[in-house]
Design a protein around this nucleic acid. Structure first.
Lengths: 144, 144
DNA sequence: AAAAATTAGTTTGATAGTCAAATTATTTAC
DNA sequence: GTAAATAATTTGACTATCAAACTAATTTTT
């Protein structure tokens, strides 16, 4: 009961504030103009060369219309390059610009620091336990 | 490295999908018309009698203008009652209607089930580790 | 090879959520 | 009793989202 209560408190606070928290941590210096949403798009576009709109939209679980709007803004801000495919001229290829790649790595570093700050306090056994618990949590969400 | 990677994967997935997931779980039956945002407002209004706009807005970290919009919608949907204070007629008091209270409890039950489904799979030692890790995570967010 | 169907992406029209700044109504301070 | 402060709402602007209409290009059918 007590542990449940504490866990619930922590989880509720994390869930409620997660976007705000992450945004606050990420929107610094060079990346002031990147929203959390922009960052998710940047992550989905990824570092491994160009992807088409449909593929990225599907991975983000939004419509291509929604992605078009997001990409318009990211192109204007200079994080994403957009070109038409030569093989199939219906297809639009999007990829990260140099600035976009820097933002991607900045974001990834934030995540790595976050994980490190947790893991470094735990023994190996404890780490294994944590992994098990989080996997359970992810499963709960997938099936409910 | 390996554990770090797994932890990152799980956390990233949880963070990215948290709103969608919670919304899907909550918008059922009687509560089809409640958005995640509505639910956060309902939670902030709470069960312990009337609160004024400024107080609730501050606890949600939004402007009172934003809260006014949200409350307009929740009043229209029947989840929140709005009255003017008699002592100070500038003040607007908001509280949960009966329907609002039911929605609040529905939401809390979701969280409790979630916590139970995690905790019941873990030994007491394991529970302690999870709590420790999540507390660290919350601390990381508070200081970064 | 022309017409029809499909596919990729954009645009449009609608809704929700957000903020800053202007406005209204009321209370407090001098 | 006027001025200042406070509480809330309204306004105007922006982002995010979807479904549906639309445009352009490719593939399939006949």
């Amino acid at each position: 009961m007590n542990i449940n209560h504490t866990l619930n408190e922590v989880l509720v606070r994390l869930f409620r504030n997660i976007n705000m928290i992450e945004e606050r941590a990420l929107r610094t210096g060079e990346y002031k103009d990147v929203t959390t949403n922009d960052m998710h798009v940047i992550e989905a576009v990824g570092m491994e060369g160009a992807k088409n709109m449909t593929r990225v939209a599907r991975s983000l679980e939004v419509t291509t219309g929604t992605l078009t709007i997001a990409i318009n803004s990211l192109v204007k801000k200079g994080y994403v390059d957009r070109t038409r495919s030569e093989e199939d001229r219906r297809v639009v290829l999007i990829s990260l610009s140099e600035k976009g790649k820097r933002a991607y790595l900045h974001h990834r570093k934030f995540h790595e620091q976050m994980i490190d700050s947790i893991v470094k306090e735990l023994t190996e056994e404890e780490q294994a336990v944590l992994e098990k618990a989080l996997t359970k949590l992810a499963q709960f969400f997938q099936t409910s």
